[in-house]
Design a protein around this nucleic acid. Structure first.
Lengths: 219, 219
DNA sequence: ACCCGGTCGTATCCGGCGATACAGCGCGCC
DNA sequence: GGCGCGCTGTATCGCCGGATACGACCGGGT
């Protein structure tokens, strides 16, 4: 029941390799637990490639509630959204574990891209992936059915982190019901209720703290 | 009460100019009303810059319901999401008016970007903007309050299309309640109910078919 | 004039989610 | 060991949005 490794996002190894190759050419940074990489509403032009640690990216709503967008683990990129369009950041990123990251500055990215034209393509592929994930989350959030919302999250985790298991795909990321609630826009109670129902239906199993998504449910 | 000009998205002029400058270097295409630019689940590598016309981008859910992502009007880009990551398209784009577009192929984009390094940067700025819009929609979709969901849409339209008006910002895009419902994940009935409430509260006015968003509501 | 399709307004009913409260439980910490 | 904290499982209740149905209105077409 390791509490660690709760990441909910990562990129393909090829893209990660491309970004890692800039080690030495960009600033290396370390963030302590609880330190912010960037904060909602501020304007700056940096984005971060996470080498190790864990960063929670979330939006704080007017009413004070927090919407968790992702937990970015090793080999994830964050902050590139507001780094490029020059508008205030729409999310906040805080390290929930000690974190090592590479800091790219879009003010200097042009010269980096000139030196390595593949960087631009890699970035585009990556932002495209993020766009896809966001659109799919949207698709399921318009539904008010919590089962739908939660299954979408589990399927995504299954694709990104799960390993094969006799009864399905074992998701090696552990999220509390409260975290799931905050990512799916439901209440904590509804998450347990819904996951209970899913278990009864045989779409889901719990084994020593890990969630197993039945194959036939796995899209 | 023109029925036309129902676009819900456009980009800044500077970015549009950059893409228009490729006229002649990429394929020009025309789509008849009802024709599809691309279809959900298929794989291909093209994306489109819309010169004139109107294209509806939507996701069809398993249960048959349709989630409208955007109505792309002149100076909008669509399809770049699945063009770059090589995965099946997550949305369908169909021309709802006769449409002229420039067709970019990511298979050839590398040479285009080499010829004009600014293209990559323009694309990144654009996908970043889309990421922002999607994230903000997400922020409000997690809320189950229809008022919240609908105001988010209206604010966005206000920023993109509205003109100043004595009582607020006049949104020159006309959407039916049904379209709003499909974009906000509520029912048609709830949209009229909610907009009625907003009108009573003085946050909203209707004038010859156009919606006016009161200034103090305009974020 | 007539019909008709699309849109907006409104009523009723039902189901299910959110809020709240509380009980069991595992784990870590003093 | 004992205590406390965070997580999970349930119960109750109130409220509100979805489904459905129906009527009014408007514009276009024949």
């Amino acid at each position: 029941m390791t509490k660690k490794a709760t990441a909910t996002w990562r990129m393909t190894d090829a893209l990660a390799a491309k970004l890692v190759s800039f080690e030495g050419k960009v600033r290396a940074r370390r963030f302590a637990e609880g330190e912010q990489l960037y904060r909602q509403d501020e304007i700056n032009t940096c984005f971060y490639f996470i080498k190790s640690g864990l960063v929670q990216v979330s939006i704080f709503r007017r009413d004070g509630t927090e919407v968790v967008l992702e937990n970015m683990g090793p080999n994830a990129l964050c902050g590139e959204g507001s780094a490029f369009d020059g508008l205030p950041r729409f999310s906040t990123a805080v390290a929930v574990e000690p974190t090592e990251a590479l800091e790219f500055d879009t003010a200097r990215i042009e010269s980096l891209m000139r030196a390595d034209p593949e960087l631009a393509l890699a970035m585009l592929r990556l932002t495209s992936l993020k766009q896809r994930i966001l659109a799919l989350r949207l698709e399921h959030l318009v539904s008010n059915d919590p089962e739908d919302r939660i299954l979408e999250l589990l399927r995504r985790l299954s694709q990104m982190f799960a390993i094969d298991h006799e009864r399905g795909r074992k998701i090696i990321t552990h999220l509390t019901h409260e975290q799931i609630a905050s990512m799916t826009g439901t209440s904590r109670v509804t998450v347990t209720r819904t996951m209970g129902r899913l278990r009864e239906k045989g779409m889901l199993f719990i084994e020593d703290g890990f969630t197993i998504l039945a194959n036939e449910v796995d899209s």
